[in-house]
Amino acid sequence: MEWFLQYHYNYLIYVVLMMIGLYGATAKPNLVKKVIALGMFQTAVFLFYISMAVKKGGTAPIYWEALREGQPYTNPLPHVLILTAIVVSVSTTAVALALVIAIKKEFGTVEADELGEFEEL
């Protein structure tokens, strides 16, 4: 356990952040807060990917001298993947906020419980 906390605490942080995000995205009544929480939820996953790429004492894979001396390097692929996922996340936030603005204009509120009165279930 101590070993886990010392070397893998970022995995713990990602899970905690992710669960806060999931809670907020589903339980918070305010739509803007939902969007913020959704962003947190996605960012936690980025943290997971980046943590996974780390190698102890690893260098960036572009330092040729270090690599030639046999120093290990950090896996660049998860970084590239997450760059794509960040773009996706930004687009999602943009679409979500655009929807929130449209909802505010149409209904005059961004609180889910007030909006619920308009919804047919």
């Binding site: 999931l22 739509l31 959704l38 939820f41 996605q42 999602t92 929130v100 209904f107 919804e119």
Partner: peptide
């Protein structure tokens, strides 16, 4: 209500 439906779909779809 298309807007609230889309928003709900967005949250669950993204999750």
């Amino acid at each position: 209500r298309a807007l609230t439906a889309a928003f709900r779909y967005l949250i669950l779809g993204t999750v």
